[in-house]
Design a protein around this nucleic acid. Structure first.
Lengths: 330, 330
DNA sequence: CTGAAAGCGCTTACAG
DNA sequence: CTGAAAGCGCTTACAG
């Protein structure tokens, strides 16, 4: 089923057939309709390869990621796909672990296939992918990973997210808010911690550790075993830590949210919803981030101008039950 | 940079250049080498679109999935990608939720782009994707989802996995093994339960519920609150349930693994490893399943014969600490 | 051993 | 208003 078949069936030339189907050129409305109808009847679908060869557009982009676990990449991917499917653009997913050779192979494969652009994504804002994308013949957008010079980079606004969490706790009347978080060498950890400090003051400590439930447990032990006043709230660096904190508090007979409010970060549905009580958490809006990344790489591919630099997208608070309080009333 | 540039730079015709680069035709070894060297020097990369137009192979396949959460699809995807990258094949990821219209859009987009084949994947063995793939012009392989008549379908061997779990418990000396699992309308639930029955006998009950920690909790309550002898082991339908079971037992002062051994299913790393104690679990080998699916669709695309029907891939036991015992000595 | 020509399926100036 | 021709970048019979 090629355009030749359509042309033959409609009794016109292939140029006319092409123009009819693409709504270009000028011809009798009746002719155009007839060609379209016949194309539909014989099930003609234009070959995107042939079309791409001419137009220099493949309607294809590549998503490169080293987040094999997919916790971050998957929502990003969903957003990209959702935004681009309407434009007829399909997405190659390339999981490259942290292997530079594998990364290069995938980049080469994508370039061979004439992708219109590449989105680089990762699991950490302050690390680069193990492959250099800075001088490719196609546009590159960085989403949730460190970008190269003068590139377009999209990331979540972790400071604003942290503020959102702590302000919510303050609004609920909490005054002694502790912060239990991940490793200090993470940029996002430092950014969240300093936003926390601004809002919460320094009545309670920041405890740096690892991204694990066990660390949440341990930190609660350290805080609650020391003498003196205890926190009435804990802002956690992610949901895993928050889960550990909630479980540890329950085991000590401290009631959540009556005695202590807990906020997580990531809004990792499966974890946040299964915790008892379900976690109030900060959502980084990764799907929205993916959507923006998709639209941005598309704009670049079409030659529309895009301001380079880092663009921060807002986080939002998702209220469940670990803080008490109703859903946020502005 | 096209083959014209290579030909010009090497002082040969484009036919000769093409043949030199593809190791076809006959020519002086010296000419061939020179062309190759020059191609490398000017950074020539053949346009896969043009190549695909001739060869009728795009070196592209599509992965269709309704598992937006990605728990199952992601390992499958990793396996597919890993198997195919060596063959120069790239993968379109199409997340279609459960939306038939969206599914059709993605299928059409893939066909337009001349994919060499499609792999359909899901989150449930006994459900079909919301789109009919049974009479496409390209080969289709089903992985971890119900396939159509006479298709090639790959799935995990849940009965064998369940047997592995229960036999492991028996080997550790457990005699009263309960089974707490998901909804009975899941095919895999029934298959696991009946394999469990065969090995464990009927001293303890099968409790059907939902795929949630809360159900694990609740089921432990039901069992331990009734009078009479208690189980000395629990085989759980998935890791979430197992986590609920382990937590509930701990809260009752029942020691895991000293008093009761617990086995999960799925080997969902992030959950299994964070449970205290870490969960021994059954791994469905989804990455291997993806690898097989990739190689199978490739074989089909190349016209090699593939036996239709359902192929079950073996599960394996991953030993952590929730059962006691050493790593399986086989 | 090497090159001119035809062609993959399509689009787009350009004639008529 | 419609069609013949050239061409996107490549490969592959077929001549020479």
């Amino acid at each position: 089923m090629t355009i030749h078949d359509v042309a033959a069936a409609a009794g016109v030339s292939i140029s006319t057939a092409s123009k009819a189907l693409n709504n270009t050129g000028r011809m009798g409305a009746e002719t155009r309709e007839r060609v379209k109808r016949i194309a539909g009847e014989i099930g003609f679908r234009p070959n995107a390869l042939a079309r791409g060869l001419l137009s220099k557009r493949s309607f294809t982009i590549g998503l490169l990621t080293n987040d094999t676990y997919g916790r971050f990449t998957l929502p990003v991917m969903a957003g990209i796909s959702e935004a681009l499917v309407d434009h007829g653009v399909s997405v190659f997913l390339c999981a490259i672990e942290d292997d530079p050779a594998l990364g290069q192979i995938h980049v080469d494969a994508m370039l061979d296939k004439q992708v219109d652009g590449i989105i680089a994504s990762g699991k950490r804002l302050d690390r680069r992918l193990p492959v250099d994308l800075s001088s490719l013949p196609v546009p590159v957008v960085y989403a949730f990973t460190e970008g190269s010079e003068n590139s377009v980079t999209l990331r979540s606004d972790d400071a604003q997210g942290a503020r959102l969490a702590v302000e919510w706790l303050a609004k609920l009347g909490r005054r002694r808010i502790a912060h239990i978080t991940g490793p200090e060498d993470f940029f996002s950890v430092r950014e969240r911690a300093s936003a926390y400090r601004e809002v919460a003051g320094d009545v309670e400590p920041v405890l740096y550790g690892i991204w694990a439930e066990s660390w949440g447990h341990e930190a609660v032990g350290a805080i609650w075993d020391r003498p003196g006043e205890k926190p009435d709230a804990v802002f956690c660096g992610n949901d895993q830590i928050a889960r550990g904190v909630v479980d540890a508090l329950r085991e000590r007979g401290v009631r959540v949210p009556e005695d202590v409010s807990v906020v997580g970060f990531d809004n990792w549905e499966i974890l946040a919803a299964q915790t008892r009580p379900p976690l109030t958490s900060i959502d980084m809006g990764l799907k929205e981030l993916g959507r923006e990344a998709g639209l941005t790489v598309l704009a670049l591919a079409e030659g529309r101008p895009v301001e380079p630099g880092v663009r921060k997208l807002p986080c939002r608070l998702v209220v469940r039950q670990s803080c008490g309080g109703m859903s946020p009333t502005e």
